[in-house]
């Protein structure tokens, strides 16, 4: 693509999905998805295991045909103009497609050549990316000896080799240690510029929150809520909370009453578990105020903690059930949802 075309592309939506449905046997993997993703942004599709994220990515990247509905990527129909779509996208699948027997550099060059960059340009881009992704020292080592984080970086580098307009990342940080995850987040965040778009899927609320300009929450093949990270926090339990566990749970109501004026109407309490929580948006002064009030009410605490919201909290707030409990698809793995 020449620069003119790219500027032209910036006027269009990066991804436009209308009524996409897909069924596998008895499982309705996608059920009437509608979404629009604007250029220059990071979009996160947030949902638990088995909610249909990979299926949607596969449809958008021309790997799978939907049963009904239409989708355009970069202005091209994913079915009618599949080859055009392929020339403007990069895909990093849920599991890194890294060739163990090849070196890091060879892995990149092969993908570059298959994007038709030519031998010389592929080599040059490979060098650039190895540098950018901190893989220079490992460039001539077979990928077999790479760590999980290095494999992810190499995989991501491969998808960037032809400077794709729209980048699809399916759970890019699942299974990574915190340090590698942070490093990858930086790279991902830096991609959404010059009319480029990142479409990522994730199970981590924190990841969507950190990276995305817009988040759509998917559950059992349906988009159940859409908005900016700020909007989702407000509406749907996406804020962090101060959580108190009482030594004696008979004090639950008393503790809730004592704290009520700090966050009127936003106190959650459960006398069964002896826990009380309130939104933690009052700065560090709030925490000491909570402790002071418990002290003066003579309520002893067994535990006091600051809880980051998880996907489960948001699900609970929106649907009334947590992400891992799903009557429709019995095979979902609860353990993978944090």
């Amino acid at each position: 693509m020449n620069p003119e075309d790219i500027r032209e592309k910036c006027k269009e939506d990066s991804v436009r999905i209308e009524g996409i449905s897909k069924r596998f046997g008895k499982v309705q993997a996608l059920d009437g998805i509608n979404l629009v993703v604007e250029p220059n942004s990071v979009f996160a599709l947030l949902g638990p295991n088995g909610s249909g994220k990979t299926t949607l990515v596969r449809i958008l990247t021309t790997l799978l045909k939907a049963d009904s509905g239409t989708a355009q990527v970069g202005g091209f129909d994913v079915v009618g103009m599949a080859q055009k779509v392929r020339s403007v996208i990069g895909l990093a699948g849920q599991y890194p497609a890294v060739d163990d027997t090849l070196t890091g550099r060879e892995n990149l060059e092969i993908i570059g050549q298959l994007y038709h960059l030519g031998g010389k340009k592929s080599r040059a881009r490979a060098s650039e990316l190895l540098e950018q992704f901190d893989l220079v020292d490992a460039a001539s080592t077979r990928a077999k000896f790479y760590s999980g984080g290095m494999r992810r970086r190499l995989d991501l580098a491969a998808t960037l080799i032809a400077k794709p307009l729209i980048l699809f990342l399916d759970e890019p940080t699942t299974g990574l240690d915190p340090r590698s995850r942070l490093a990858l987040w930086e790279v991902i965040a830096s991609q959404a510029k010059d009319c480029n778009t990142v479409f990522l899927t994730t199970q981590y609320l924190e990841e969507a929150d950190r990276l995305a300009h817009k988040i759509a929450i998917i559950d059992e093949g349906k988009i159940i809520r859409e908005g900016t990270p700020g909007e989702l926090k407000k509406c749907c339990g996406g804020e962090s909370r101060i959580s108190l566990t009482l030594y004696d749970r008979v004090n639950t109501q008393a503790a809730a009453d004592a704290l009520n004026s700090l966050a009127p109407g936003k106190i959650l309490s459960s006398s069964e578990t002896g826990t009380v929580s309130l939104p933690a948006d009052g700065g560090s002064g709030l925490l000491s105020e909570v402790v002071r009030r418990m002290d003066s009410a003579g309520i002893v605490l067994a535990d006091l903690s600051l809880k980051q919201p998880t996907l489960d909290d948001v699900f609970l707030a929106i649907t009334g059930h947590t992400a891992e409990v799903s009557p429709a698809a019995g095979s979902k793995i609860a353990g993978e949802v944090r």
Binding site: R58, L91, G93, A97, A158
Partner: peptide, 17 residues
């Protein structure tokens, strides 16, 4: 199984290749 076919099919390369 290792995901190469998915990657290759998402590239603008010639289908029969």
């Amino acid at each position: 199984t290792k995901g190469f076919v998915d990657r290759f099919r998402s590239l603008p390369m010639a289908r029969p290749a």
